[in-house]
Write a protein that binds this DNA or RNA. Structure first.
Length: 708
RNA sequence: GGGCGGUUAGCUCAGCUGGUUAGAGCGCAGCAUUGACAUUGCUGAGGUCAGAGGUUCGAAUCCUCUACCGCCCACCA
């Protein structure tokens, strides 16, 4: 038997191997496209969707990295000049939430901390988390270029983001408006629609006498100022009321004059077909008021307390006031009936579940129409972006066809400051503060998607950076399918608007990673599986493989530990095949390694056919097939068939057959290790280092030539 | 109320543009094996491809409808 490396005689130890191999990769410099050998000419680029730097890496990140790193490694071996650009997001509101929770646990409140100090503390907290997260990314074997690592609050990124705002203001794509916004009263900030969601809730539904009408509401405390009564213009029941008609009636705090409004948005079938409106605290009502030029009055302040119009209830929080108001309505005979179990949808902050309070507030808005039209043109008309799976294109376009103007102001400190100043009614937008006194800086920061939407531009150094010229548009964006309307369309918008081109040629949406039972992972359920824990237990290779094999693009993945364990076994199989191949070919003469017997040549041809299929699967982003074929070939063709049938040949007396067979085993095994590398980078690189020099094209598998 | 995805072996899922006896992993049963590997090998059981109808020489694969499961969107007060 030939001399074998000591470690091959023991089972494969991922923990002993992975860190060391990653260090070799990093030190080689080959993660950096500029340092790749000359054969790597044609660029291939992708960006890491920046993980939020407020915690550790989760399974979704692990999934994304497993797929994307496989593609990047494949492309690098194919000879592309590959860039995989890493980074992290400050994640504005979300990070501030995480930080506030931490403060709460420590018995503190953010209101006790001055803004500048708060910002600094969150920054320290974020930078610490960022470090851990980057370590996690390394542990998974991610072949990204750390020299280009970008953080959303790097000065060049924040400057670019602000400059974009200034440019958009100049182009009329950004305006300051008093419009209904989603107000989170607990955290005192506005949110965009994608940051909120509806939850089903059961509440009492109050039917109230409003002059000759009966109206219904779940929120009687908003009704003090209701002085418009609205009905459908074609509702026969109210044909004798005319638009603009004045009606004197008794209301909660005394007599008022109501005005009849006819508007087609009212549903004749719902309830009595009549409603009163509260334009300050309801989107529908606001729209009706806008259409007819009606007055709007704030009833509840930004802390949830009732204002002047509530009369005796002024100053009370609406929650406290509601039962008292109901009492009063009852005593005045205005309460017709109560439906105690009325089911309806309530909008809440999707991160904190705090019920949203619609409010009118002066905010910065992005005018969406011109931008979404550019997206529709590029995606629908010109078909410039490949969507995987392709039905996601419809989802995105539906969103684009129905977009409403985007509120980009947030009343939180943790974010990129909006470069605007106010003096009375005057507004100044620019990179520098205006000259003259009495200008007040806008204290708000940008919505996190305003900066992350520009990620492909800022990371690559738009407008004149070398990377922007080389790598824009990027080849691939891979991200979670939940971002199909949050992040992806914004990147396309900004890409087209600023960069004059789509930001990526292909967008691949991976599905959600759930627990083994198909349930969404969440900290509260305690079913979270950490990619790093799994990697430490079974090896990052096994984790990556388990997430790749058999998972159709876009599909939900139930992450099972059994499956990961299965691929740890596979890693060990690879290890032992290596041991067999090296020990049975170590004494082979080096004179002829390229010609085979007819029989063996056939086996080589079969390998080529498989390798071709795998290559094809890679090119069409069918990694679930590419990885499964690789696995299957190595274990059930190479090990079970080729190795087994080799044993008698190697022991037999036919010298030519033996020579050919030894050459065959080495030749095929080198090919297998190459095919395996994108999926299981660590063990394949480790095996490569033990294969004989004359079989290899270079020291490092990572940049060796793909077998096709 | 709209839209989308799914329903294939006990479990988790593959099966691309329709083409001979429907596949994998895990699990299960039996056998083997101490010179690559028990983190092993071989063999096997197990499916009317959700249901109904249609197109076709031929459908798990295309069309229609139905039934469940899941996801997303939506200003019914």
């Amino acid at each position: 038997m030939a001399d074998l490396p000591e470690k091959l005689t023991k089972p494969y130890q991922p923990n002993e191997t992975e860190g060391r191999v990653y260090k070799r990769w990093e030190e080689s410099g080959f993660f950096n496209p500029d340092k790749l050998p000359k054969r790597h000419k044609e660029p291939y680029s992708t960006l890491m969707p920046p993980p939020n730097a407020n915690g550790r890496l989760h399974a979704g990140h692990g999934f994304e990295i497993a797929l994307k790193d496989a593609i990047i490694r494949f492309q690098r071996m194919r000879g592309k000049k590959t860039l995989y650009l890493p980074g992290s997001d400050h994640a504005g509101f979300e990070t501030q939430m995480v930080f506030e929770k931490k403060l709460e646990k420590e018995g503190q409140s953010r209101h006790d901390i001055p803004p500048q100090k708060l910002y600094e503390e969150i920054m320290a907290f974020t930078l610490e988390n960022k470090k851990y997260m980057e370590d996690d990314i390394r542990k998974l074997g991610t072949s990204c270029d750390w020299s280009r690592n970008t953080f959303m609050l790097d000065p060049r990124v924040t400057r670019r983001t602000q400059e974009t705002f200034v440019k958009m203001y100049g182009d009329g794509l950004v305006y300051r408006g008093e419009r209904i916004i989603h107000w989170n009263p607990k955290h005192q900030t506005s949110l965009s629609d994608v940051e909120t969601e509806f939850i089903e809730q059961e509440d009492p539904f109050y039917y109230l006498k409003y002059g000759p009408f009966v109206i219904a509401t779940v929120r009687p405390e908003t009704k003090f100022g209701d002085k418009y009564v609205v009905m459908h213009p074609e509702d026969p029941r109210y044909a004798n009321f005319t638009h603009g008609q004045k009606i004197e009636l008794e209301w909660i705090n005394g007599p008022i004059t109501a005005t009849v409004i006819k508007d087609a948005s009212v549903d004749k079938e719902f309830g009595s077909g009549v409603m009163t409106i509260t334009p300050w605290h309801d989107q529908t009502d606001f729209d009706i008021a806008e259409r007819h030029g009606l007055e709007k009055e704030q009833i509840i302040d930004f802390n949830g307390k009732l204002l002047q119009s509530a009369g005796e209830f002024a100053g009370m929080h609406w929650k406290k006031a509601r039962p008292l108001i109901i009492e009063k309505l009852k005593s005045k005979g205005l309460l017709v009936k109560v439906d105690e179990h009325y089911k309806h949808a309530v909008r809440v902050d999707s991160r904190t579940n705090v019920p949203i309070e619609p409010q009118i507030r002066a905010q910065w808005f992005v005018k969406m129409k011109p931008l979404t039209e550019m997206v529709i043109q590029a995606v629908e008309k010109e078909d410039k972006i490949t969507f995987i799976p392709d039905y996601q294109k419809k989802v995105l376009l539906h969103w684009m066809h129905n977009a409403i103007d985007w509120n980009i102001s947030r009343q939180i400190v943790w974010g990129i400051p909006i470069p605007a100043w106010f003096k009375g009614d005057e507004v100044h937008v620019g990179m520098d503060s205006p000259s003259g006194n009495d200008w007040q800086k806008d204290p708000d920061t940008f919505d996190t998607w305003f900066s992350s939407g520009q990620w492909p531009l800022t990371t690559l150094g738009y407008p004149d950076g070398a990377d922007f010229k080389t790598f824009y548009p990027t080849d691939l964006m891979e991200t979670g399918s939940d971002l199909v309307f949050k992040w992806v369309p914004r990147m396309i918008m900004f890409g087209l608007y600023l960069g004059n081109d789509i930001p990526f040629k292909t967008v691949y949406f991976h599905g959600m990673v759930t627990d083994p039972k198909g349930k969404k992972m969440s900290k509260s359920k305690g079913n979270v599986i950490s990619p790093v824990d799994m990697s430490e237990k079974y090896g990052a290779d096994a984790f990556r493989m388990a997430l790749t094999v058999g998972n159709t693009p876009g599909g939900t993945v139930a992450l099972s530990e059994d499956k990961i364990r299965g691929y740890k076994h596979f890693a060990n199989k690879v290890w032992n095949i290596t041991r067999f191949v090296l020990s049975s070919t170590g004494n082979a003469s080096t004179e002829d390694k390229t010609t085979f017997t007819q029989q063996d040549q056939k086996t080589v041809d079969e390998f080529k056919a498989i390798a071709e299929e795998i290559t094809e699967n890679f090119e069409t982003y069918q990694l679930h097939l590419a990885s499964e074929k690789t696995y299957h070939y190595i274990w059930h063709t190479f090990a079970d068939k080729i190795v087994e049938e080799s044993k008698p040949i190697l022991l037999g007396g036919d010298a030519e057959a033996k020579r050919s067979r030894e050459a065959l085993l080495l030749h095929l095994w080198v090919g297998c290790i190459k095919l395996l590398h994108p999926f299981m980078p660590f063990i394949s690189e480790e095996v490569w280092s033990m294969l004989p020099e004359e079989q290899k094209d270079g020291e490092m598998l990572m940049i060796s030539k793909w077998p096709m």
